[in-house]
Design a binder for these strands. Structure first.
Lengths: 248, 248
DNA sequence: CAGGTTCTTGTGGAAATGACCATATCAATG
DNA sequence: CATTGATATGGTCATTTCCACAAGAACCTG
């Protein structure tokens, strides 16, 4: 039929939830916020936070509300929709369609503080997706995998890299975001040239970051410019065969 | 709460639908399949095809079924999820969350034939999104806009360009896909070198396409190689404007 | 101060990009 | 049938970008 038959009563109802992949960069590694489920189904297993959508709120508002409840962070601009998941048996009790969002945060302390410490944890993504890690509840493993793929794409298409770092940051911190997410090594000198070539990407603050424990010249602190709203000056290296030694 | 309260009975039910943005390239322009709604709400208005999700099928299966019903095309591999839309008032009758998919087809004739011709039409995207065109039903205008944005991104990240052309195609046809979707002009000679530089992108068939009505040297026909599954050799040009004629 | 670490600047070759020219091969026209 | 117009194909060339590495500068620790 070219037109949908419209009789809502004929069609069994679904429950609609929103789930969130909360990502952050901690000690140079990508982490995801996981919570222990306290109720059935999948009680006791790790899951990504989420909850039911209410009738009078939009999907984004639902995600925003859950983000606030789970992490204490109020930021709708940080949330981006990842996709919908609706396999018939993804929830053993009833038919639940969930809409997944992901958010990139930087305030690591605030995340752990907003919720019960025993029931929430920041887990390195490589571990959470590793073979040794316990499977996540529902299809949250797949959702997490999709989120990582999405992040990799958004790093190419958008300026989401700046969401991982603080209001002021060093170029090394920003570079580490790309290196960790893409699993590549980027030459510091070339990276520096790329973001400083044009105005509007990073703005020097005049201040300097404290040197790390290993010493070294203190790096200059920058603010993110407006150009990140429309893209990124960093492009993924060519998958060429001219790779150098792995140096590790 | 760190854990979701799990009592489905508390939460009002939602209807879940799938809607599809069916795109095709016809006479060098990007077209979208629209249908006339025959029932309320939004009766008589243009809309993108779609229908209710059934309890025992996945979202992708629902979209696949609808695609088959609407266009006669059976291709789950052509469908990609676009996103979920769940604003409270997007459907005046009840709370409906829709999951949008988009599909890129090439068989234009089959689309018009599969359904009532009077109730379905291929409309140029630029017209459907233009000011003069009548508004689409529901929030389908926004969904269509999002789909076009997504196509532009997928042209960068994936090899979706080959989905617009036939099993065999000329390089000019493939080039036209990028030119139309990005709104740019690409030099034919340079485009040719990009896709022929490495093996695996396009494979010559030895045959030649008939010249167009305007004459011209007949172009060689190619098949798509396997590399398109992992990306594209074509990159969006930079905002031009550097140097004009000078030298000499 | 010596040695180590990190940031920063400099440099040269390789590769990609973009524009243009020249030629080949067809259809349509008169 | 020769001309014209259009398109495909092959080639050249200057510029820009990319990338690896070298060297200097600034800071820490011991």
């Amino acid at each position: 039929m070219a037109t949908r038959t419209y009789d809502p009563q004929e069609f069994p109802p679904f429950a609609v939830t929103v789930d969130m992949v909360v990502l952050t960069m901690s000690r140079g590694r990508l982490h995801v916020l996981l919570v222990r489920r306290g109720v059935a189904p999948f009680k006791g297993m790790w899951a990504i936070p989420g909850g039911f959508k209410r009738p009078r709120e939009s999907l984004l508002e639902a995600a925003q509300r859950e983000l606030l409840e789970e992490t204490g962070v109020d930021g709708a601009d940080l949330l981006r929709q990842l996709g919908a998941y609706g396999d018939p048996d993804r929830d053993p009790r009833m038919n639940v369609v969930t809409v997944a969002y992901f958010a990139v945060l930087r305030d690591v302390q605030g995340i752990a503080g907003g919720t019960d410490a025993a029931a929430a944890a920041l887990v390195p993504v490589s571990e959470a997706l590793g073979e040794d890690f316990e499977p996540l509840a529902f299809d949250h493993g797949r959702i997490l995998r999709d989120a990582i793929e999405r992040i990799r794409a958004d790093l190419i298409l958008t300026g989401i890299a700046t969401a991982f770092v603080g209001r002021t940051f060093t170029l090394a911190e920003l570079r580490a975001v790309y290196e960790e997410a893409w699993g590549v090594r980027i030459d510091g000198a070339n990276f520096r040239r790329s973001v400083l070539a044009d105005e509007g990407w990073v703005i020097p603050t005049g201040r300097r970051a404290p040197s790390g424990s290993a010493g070294g010249k203190p790096a200059e602190l920058y603010r993110a410019g407006r150009k990140w709203r429309h893209g990124t000056p960093i492009r993924p290296g060519r998958p060429n065969g001219t790779r150098r030694r792995e140096s590790r």
